[in-house]
C-alpha cells in the first residue's frame, strides 16, 4: 500500500506494523467487519418483520394460521442453531436449485441425486457457475441473512406475541367500547403500546444476534473470526514478507474488544430507546418519569 512496504525487512517496528496491517490479507479482515455490520443491519429488521408476522399469525382466530405461527416459533426455537445452520442452508440451496431445475430443464434425463452427489443441469445452478465470484459471495450472504432472519424471527415472534398480550386488557376493552373493530384496536391501541413490553426481550435478542455472527463461517462466508484465525496463525518467512509467531491471541483479543464495545454501544442506545418508549405508559418506569416531571 505504501511505497516503503516493498522491503519490510529494512523497516523499523512502527513502519513494519503499518505495512503489516495494510496488506491485502488484512484488507480481507477489515472487509469482513463491513460484512458483519451489514448482516446485522439487514437481519434485524428482517427478523423483526418475520417475528411480527409470526406473532400476528399465532394470535389469529383462524386455527390453521394460528397453528402455523405457533409451529414456526416452537420448531425453530427448539432446534439448536448450529444444526439449523448446517442443515437448513444446504437444504434451502438445493430446494431453490431443484425448483429452477424443474422449470428450466424439463428434458433433463439423468438422476438428480446420484449417490451422495446432487446434480442439476448447469442452467439451474444458483448462482450460475459462470457468474463472477462476487455473485457467489452475495448469494451466500443473502442466504445467511435469510437463515439468521428465520432463526431470530422465531424468537422475536415469541417476544412480540407476549408483548401483545401484555398490553392491559382494559385498554382494548375501552377501544371496543368506542366501537373500534378488532383490527382497529390492534393497530391503534395494541401495536403502539406493545413495544415497551417487547423491548427488554428484543434487546436481549439483538445482543445474542451480535454474538452469533461468527456462525457466518459455517455458511461459507469468510467472517472476522476466520480472518483472525488465518492472520494470527504462525507465518514462516518462506511464504510471507511479514513472518511472525502465533499471534492468534492478539487478534482474538481485538475481536473481544470489538464485540464488547459494540454490545456496550447497543446497550446505551437501547437504554435511551426504552426511556423514550416508557413515557406516558402505565408501567413502573412511566410512573417514575411522570413523578419526576411533576
Amino acid at each position: 500500500m505504501f511505497a516503503m512496504c516493498t522491503d519490510p525487512d529494512s523497516l523499523t517496528q512502527l513502519d513494519w506494523m503499518l505495512c503489516y496491517l495494510t496488506t491485502g490479507k488484512h484488507m480481507g479482515l477489515y472487509y469482513a467487519f463491513g460484512t458483519v455490520l451489514l448482516l446485522l443491519a439487514l437481519t434485524a429488521p428482517a427478523a423483526l418483520l418475520l417475528g411480527f408476522g409470526g406473532a400476528m399469525a399465532a394470535r389469529s382466530h383462524f386455527p390453521p394460521l394460528s397453528w402455523l405461527g405457533k409451529a414456526y416459533m416452537a420448531v425453530v426455537r427448539g432446534v439448536p442453531d448450529i444444526a439449523f445452520f448446517l442443515f437448513f442452508v444446504i437444504a434451502l440451496d438445493q430446494l431453490f436449485e431443484l425448483v429452477r431445475h424443474k422449470v428450466k430443464c424439463p428434458d433433463w434425463d439423468t438422476e438428480i441425486w446420484q449417490g451422495s452427489d446432487f446434480v442439476v443441469c448447469p442452467a439451474a445452478k444458483l448462482p450460475l457457475a459462470t457468474s463472477p465470484q462476487w455473485v457467489h459471495d452475495t448469494y451466500s450472504f443473502l442466504i445467511a441473512v435469510l437463515t439468521f432472519a428465520i432463526v431470530f424471527g422465531a424468537f422475536a415472534g415469541n417476544v412480540l406475541y407476549g408483548a401483545m398480550r401484555a398490553v392491559p386488557r382494559g385498554q382494548v376493552e375501552t377501544a371496543e367500547a368506542y366501537g373500534m373493530t378488532r383490527g382497529q384496536a390492534f393497530r391503534r391501541v395494541i401495536v403502539p403500546q406493545m413495544w415497551v413490553y417487547a423491548l427488554p426481550g428484543l434487546s436481549n435478542l439483538w445482543m445474542v444476534l451480535i454474538k452469533s455472527t461468527p456462525l457466518l463461517f459455517l455458511l461459507g462466508l469468510q467472517d472476522i473470526v476466520y480472518w483472525a484465525r488465518e492472520l494470527g496463525s504462525t507465518q514462516t518467512p518462506r511464504f510471507t514478507a511479514y513472518p511472525h509467531g502465533d499471534w492468534r491471541m492478539w487478534y482474538f483479543l481485538f475481536l473481544l474488544v470489538f464485540y464488547l464495545a459494540f454490545t456496550k454501544l447497543s446497550e446505551v442506545v437501547l437504554g435511551r430507546l426504552m426511556l423514550r418508549l416508557t413515557r406516558g405508559q402505565a408501567t413502573l418506569g412511566g410512573e417514575t418519569q411522570r413523578k419526576a416531571a411533576a
Binding site: G24, K25, G28, E230, R238, F239, T240
Partner: peptide, 26 residues
Amino acid sequence: QDVVRMGTEGAYPPYNFINDAGAVDG
C-alpha cells in the same frame, strides 16, 4: 470455455495458502 470452480483450503503451505496480497497461492 466452461468455468470450473476449484475448492481449496488456503491454510496449508506450500500446498495452498493465502499470500500477503490476500489471494490464494502455492
